[in-house]
Design a protein around this nucleic acid. Sequence first.
DNA 1: GTCTATAAGATGATAGAC
DNA 2: GTCTATCATCTTATAGAC
Lengths: 189, 189
Amino acid sequence: MDRSDIVDRILDAAQSLCQTRGFNAFSFRDLAEQVGIRSASIHYHFPTKNDLGQALMMRYRQHFESFRAEINRKESSPGGKLRRYVDALREVVEDQHKLCLCSMLGAERDTLSAPVQDEIRKFVEENEAWLAKTLAERKGTNASTLPEVRAAAAGTFAALQGAMLAARACDDARRFDLAADWLLRTLAV
Amino acid sequence: MDRSDIVDRILDAAQSLCQTRGFNAFSFRDLAEQVGIRSASIHYHFPTKNDLGQALMMRYRQHFESFRAEINRKESSPGGKLRRYVDALREVVEDQHKLCLCSMLGAERDTLSAPVQDEIRKFVEENEAWLAKTLAERKGTNASTLPEVRAAAAGTFAALQGAMLAARACDDARRFDLAADWLLRTLAV
DNA sequence: GTCTATAAGATGATAGAC
DNA sequence: GTCTATCATCTTATAGAC
């Protein structure tokens, strides 16, 4: 995990700042200080802040894509897949009560460029599609586009993102567990 | 609804900016321009931005307190109460895909003063307590502090806040309906 | 690729006139 | 209570040396 590639180190620091403070509450100087270089050097890799935001959200989305593929490989039962997915979000919450990058940038949507907005939307769609497929699988079908399955996926995604938000809002990680455990029981996982 | 009191007009404009852009993405100048006065006049009423944030979240919390009391007065069945609560959030979403103030400030929590953080936490606690009481009532008891009822309330609150967030993140109000309707069906309301 | 230096504008906040 | 004027600082971003 010791990425020494400078672009990744910048993105790591930016992601951490973004998940705890928000995109509009950290500067190139804050970022440069954390990475140990000067702010002009950040601009060399990411000319504008929106370029940084786009790269940030794109990388995050791809990480989740790999992560979902890994779950599908390692876990055979739909229930096990859902529990692994929830456990990964729990780890994010337990690390400084961080928010999902998608939620933080989603909240700040109106202040971001169109390419960043597109990345956020894609993240939601891809995660909901996976949840729908997994929830359908649990019912023994592959009809993941049925209205009732799509609704369950949207509700599940909303509950999980909202649980992370409540944990951050109250500075209390147990709020995530309370809501996430209720969700898994309700889904009969 | 035509509040001419200047403090309320400032708070109205600040709330709207906050629910669409976030607390860290609007300035005293933006605010002054919307209200039609100068930024120095805003500082007369709210010396610092955190003073404004505290007043904003306190007023929002009290509005919800009155709103929940109104629901309790007008609606007798627990199911009807929950539906009214959800409908009110839907109205917020339908207005420019606004976020609940609690979610926006909750996301930005680390950048806010302790008094504002306290107001956010109180908002979550008060709304969850009301949901727990209403969900317990639906089961014919008043045991709203039972672990299973508290978990259901936390899950419900998380799902609703997350549904608002997804609608904003994707610039699509139907995402709220999809998740909220699933929630109400799941709660058998 | 990173640095120093700096531009041009925004920001929260204050002093003092009216 | 609102205004003009202003301050010190921070912000994103660029030019040009090394």
